[in-house]
Amino acid sequence: MSGYVNVDVPIELLFTDLVTEERKKDIPNYTDSWYEHHKLSADMPIMRFDSHKSLYRYFMNEQTSPSAYLDWYKNIFLTRGIAPPLQDEEVIAFRKNQYHMMKVDLSSNNAFSYQEPPLAKFNRAGGYFNLKDGHHRSTFLYCQGKRSMKVKISSEDYMDWMNIEGLSEVADSFQRHQRSLIYTPILHPSYLHWKSERDQTYPTRLDVMMDFLGSRSLLGTKVIDIGCNIGYYARHFAREGAHVTGLEPLAEHYDLALRLNRLERVNFNLLPDRFESSSRLQRYEIGLLLTVFYHLMGDRDIRNAFLRQINQCITDMLFWESGGEPETEKSLLLQNTHFTRYVKLAATSGTGKIRELGVFLKT
């Protein structure tokens, strides 16, 4: 099988390109300084491509300055000893014209048609796609709230992404548990048409958390996802190179998460433990606690054990989403853990409840 196909790929799976060692020779006037600049935004999800996001959010009147983009643009040249060919005003004028053209095209064509969709390469080891071009288009679509975009990939990459063997395991799990509902998206061609209970509409909880993290590298960061359900968030952090532990005590969620890890070619340390009683935990810089804590607030012993475990395990930040009583949850977490500061990130809603998404910080 050879050739190329055009396919819709979820925005979560679109990463920026990475110039490998053997490709350095293809960069005109290559310098090590250029490569250090390149690595700051290389092999990164489009949803965290802050320089380009700042450009489009500036055009959308959501950001006061495109300075991050202008810095990125200038350093492409300056790090190689080349004077930037365009001044700041010229760069913005050029990109603004392109922005308006893309807006017109997007509003008049359901498929956002181009003569040629961006070329992407499947990163089999990471379970995502590296864009070889089209970074501006992709970021534009992301900022417009699109959850997927069409890219051009090799037929071999498509078969790797399909992962027929893993697909049959997931189908068996759904059938065994007589399940047809999913709480979070499954990032695979066979399930892109399925409606999930959460994280369907921009900005999703993942979008908001990625905005907060900005350009912070997650490579090597230890992350724990408490009550990870079918593993959507844990897999995203794992794709970014974090060392992730996910806890999911509900047997059918655990079973499906295991199989989805194989299907999406992403692995993390998945445990069937309850967080408050697990003896297999370490220390983690980042914790995820999304719509979990409110389930156990009524049992004082479990609640206190849960809070003690948070103190022992999570050292840096805790992303949290409430149940229907956010103020009560926030008070308990601030009064009974080492986290001293709370930042509200978004008002959210889901499964019939008005919720709140935020992050607890140590300082």
Rank of each mutant, 00 (worst) to 15 (best):
R239P: 05
L258Q: 12
D211Q: 15
K132C: 11
N6T: 09
V104C: 04
R179W: 09
R341C: 10
L78M: 09
R57I: 05
S33E: 14
Y183D: 11
S113F: 13
V91L: 04
K362P: 00
M210G: 03
E62V: 02
R283S: 13
P84E: 04
T363V: 04
L270F: 10
L206R: 06
A83V: 13
T64G: 14
Y232T: 02
G145K: 06
T204Y: 05
E356D: 10
F360C: 11
L192C: 07
P28V: 04
K195C: 06
A234Q: 14
S65E: 14
L106D: 13
M102E: 11
S67H: 09
G81R: 08
N97M: 10
K96A: 07
H136K: 04
A347C: 01
N97L: 11
R300G: 01
L181W: 06
L78N: 05
G246P: 07
H38I: 03
L181T: 14
N269K: 15
N336S: 10
L106M: 15
D160C: 15
Y191S: 00
L271A: 08
T139M: 01
V292Y: 04
I182V: 15
A42Y: 06
S322A: 08
M297L: 15
A120G: 14
P203D: 09
D316K: 15
A347I: 02
V359R: 06
Y342E: 02
L333K: 01
T328A: 12
D299I: 08
D301V: 14
K53Q: 07
G227I: 06
H52L: 15
Y30I: 00
G126Q: 12
G231L: 12
L167M: 11
E252F: 11
S168I: 07
E165W: 04
S190A: 15
K74D: 14
V223A: 05
T340F: 08
L307C: 12
R137Y: 00
R124I: 13
Y142A: 04
L55C: 05
E276T: 05
T221A: 12
Y128L: 07
I286K: 03
P85N: 12
E156I: 14
L167D: 06
E156F: 13
K146Y: 07
R95M: 14
F59N: 03
L13N: 07
N336M: 04
Q309F: 10
A93H: 11
D255S: 13
D88R: 05
A234N: 13
D71Y: 11
Y35M: 12
S148E: 13
H52W: 10
R95N: 11
Q312R: 15
P84Y: 03
R176W: 08
S51G: 03
E285P: 03
M44R: 15
E89T: 07
T315F: 03
Q178H: 15
L213C: 07
H236C: 09
Q335N: 15
S155H: 06
A120W: 09
D211C: 09
I230D: 00
H295G: 00
L119Y: 12
R57G: 06
A347H: 08
I11V: 12
N61P: 00
T291N: 09
P189V: 08
